[in-house]
Structure formats: structure tokens, C-alpha cells
Amino acid sequence: MKTSAISGWKSQEGYTITIDLNSSKPIYLQICDSVITQIAMGILTPGEKLPSSRRLSSALGINYHTVNRAYSQLIQEGYVTLDRRKRITINEIPEGKRSGFDPIWVERMKVILSEAVSKGFNSDMIMVKIQSILEDIESTKDE
């Protein structure tokens, strides 16, 4: 994901969308994850247009209804907007006041943290890992 992945090329030249056909997670959710991760990393910037669902589905070799479903999900969750020319645009990351964590996130975090705890990781180890993941996201953003 880092800029240095290819020397001499700017990270601004493109972005990756990753799916795993063998994963039990639905493909449309995998596409959502790919987009959200890259928004957080600053690779996909506010105002940027995502490819049409036909184009992205061609690139991934999947049905375009699947991509459409991913886009609907992203619109619903407020990460992107469908503009008047029917193009998907990345939204601004909201600044300032937040109404608190979404209960759904808390639920998801709880599951992941419980998994870690029941595998024998203590809170210090978990905190270190969380810190390093956040640093990873932030460092890409600064470049």
C-alpha cells in the first residue's frame, strides 16, 4: 500500500480493490472494506470518482450487480455519494463533533477483541497491535 511499492511512481496514479473468492465473506462487503480502508489511508481522497460498476466488475472479473450492491452499501453508510451524473464520489471525512461510536462498530470491535482475548492475548499486547495498525493507516496518509 505504501508509495515506495513501486519506485519512481507516485501513489496518486491509482488504487487497488482486493477481493478473495475463497473467503466466506460476501464479495460486495470485501469491496466495501477495500474502499473504506483506502479512504482511511488517504489513498482515496474526498471528491474522487470511483470507477463505474461495469468497469470495476470487468477489472475484477465479477458480475456488475455485485459491485452495484457494494456501492449501494457504501452510499447507505455515508462514505460515498451518487452524483447527478450517476458517478460515485468519495465524501469528505467529517471534522469536529461526532455523535459517538456507532453501536454496530462497538459490536464488531467486541467480537474481534473477544477473539484475541480468548486466544490468550492480554490487553497490553492488544493495545500495542491496535496502536501499530492505526500508525500504519496514518503513515500512508502523511506521504
Binding site: E13, G14, T16, T18, D20, L21, S23, L56, L60, G61
Partner: peptide, 12 residues
């Protein structure tokens, strides 16, 4: 051999 597909979308 897996099923991971990574598509690089060129911006420009």
C-alpha cells in the same frame, strides 16, 4: 493457488 483478485485501477 488461491482466489485472491487484486485490481489496480489507474486514476488517470
Amino acid at each position: 493457488s488461491g482466489g485472491k483478485i487484486i485490481a489496480y485501477m489507474v486514476r488517470d
